[in-house]
Design a protein around this nucleic acid. Structure first.
Lengths: 210, 210
DNA sequence: CGTGGAGCATACCGCTTGGTATCCTGCCAC
DNA sequence: GTGGCAGGATACCAAGCGGTATGCTCCACG
């Protein structure tokens, strides 16, 4: 269903992402994930130490994908408003291309209270936190740059950064491919969202900020 | 901890909302919820038919609170941009005032695939769907009105509506009271977010839309 | 040929969970 | 007082869970 899978491990990751997304992270059992592959728990536990580790690997895969995509779009020599648009656009298209992974990532990102986790799993969670922060820093940088040059409004950077990222992740909550030409549709959505976010930031020539 | 509770039922609802929020919906057990009240499962199951019903009641409470708050802010006789700002501002303040409920609601809102549910629970889920849609309609109306009068950009209404709602719900993902004066802080955030959303929609006098 | 390990399947275990059945306790009408 | 019943505690259960121990099969390498 997904791809032929280079190795069996990625196949499991795909299945896990889909299961976590469809049934919810806690509700999806290891057996469910195995069943989707026509396999048994044995196969999953041969490749992953625990459910928590599997989940974390899904999330890391999600973030790494986004980071790689964003990297290609970033160009801090461009005017901030153009750089921001490019980054936002790229963010959305990358998001839509591997939706299940990001749905899972976002679903777990708000839950803070974890029970007893092994040191290994704690380290994975820390990795995720760091990567997420790094990813956000790129956007923080453009926004700050835009404010300096005066093309962006003078906003509370922390609040705005969070909000913009959530806005650009919004498709996670409602997107479902309506057939036809997915690539074209995804491009349309990416443009709409990037424009929306950009406009939210741009300074307005006429009105003064309180 | 919460309030003295008019009736014991609401007390359970509060505890459930907090547990679902902190531990995750599936991970939080009925016993956990009861323990938070210094009670046992018996008490919970005396008031709610099942865990699913309890969860749905939490979500319904969340939506009803928002709807009631929004109603007070709506005034379609105002210019759309002003009406929109008021609605958005009110939305955020109401959200922040009962965060646990909305965290739970949003956490569950993306999961579609449900297993076998009783007819009663199915009806609750349908109620939630309807109420959510109705709530969104108010915003759809202002946006459409703003586009007609030309103060808003000509956007794809469906995509934009979803995105704006997600944007206004964003605090659910990152807000945590930093002490001091909560009311003032919440007001600041509400203003920041409402302004952000409004600017995203407003037409720009200089640039033409492609 | 044989032997060792990667890659799984099978069988099993302890524990927790949602849910039920039953019992207890106080309060209120009469 | 005495029935009755809302409100809740206790005890219990089958099912499913994450995780482990072990067995099987096939292939690479000597």
């Amino acid at each position: 269903m997904a791809r032929k899978s280079a190795n069996s491990r990625d196949e499991i990751l795909d299945a896990a992402a889909e299961c976590f997304m469809e049934m919810g992270i806690e509700a999806a059992s290891i057996s469910d994930i195995a069943r989707r592959l026509g396999a048994t728990k044995g196969r999953v536990y041969h490749h992953f130490a625990s459910k928590g580790a599997l989940l974390s690997d899904v999330r890391i895969h999600a973030i790494d994908t986004m980071s790689a995509a964003l990297e290609e779009a970033i160009d801090f020599d461009l005017p901030p408003e153009q750089n921001f648009y490019n980054m936002a656009h790229r963010h959305v298209t990358a998001l839509l291309k591997t939706l299940p992974y990001h749905k899972v990532d976002l679903q777990k990102s708000n839950l803070s209270g974890e029970k007893s986790t092994t040191p290994y799993e704690r380290e994975l969670l820390e990795q995720i936190r760091v990567k997420r922060t790094e990813y956000g820093e790129a956007f923080r940088k453009v926004i700050a740059q835009g404010i300096e040059t005066g093309v962006f409004r003078k906003v509370q950077v922390s609040v705005t950064l969070h909000s913009v990222l959530v806005l650009l992740n919004a498709p996670v909550f409602w997107y479902q491919s309506r057939g036809e030409d997915p690539a074209a549709e995804q491009n349309r959505i990416a443009d709409e969202l990037a424009t929306l976010a950009l406009n939210a930031l741009l300074a307005r020539p006429d009105s003064a900020t309180s």
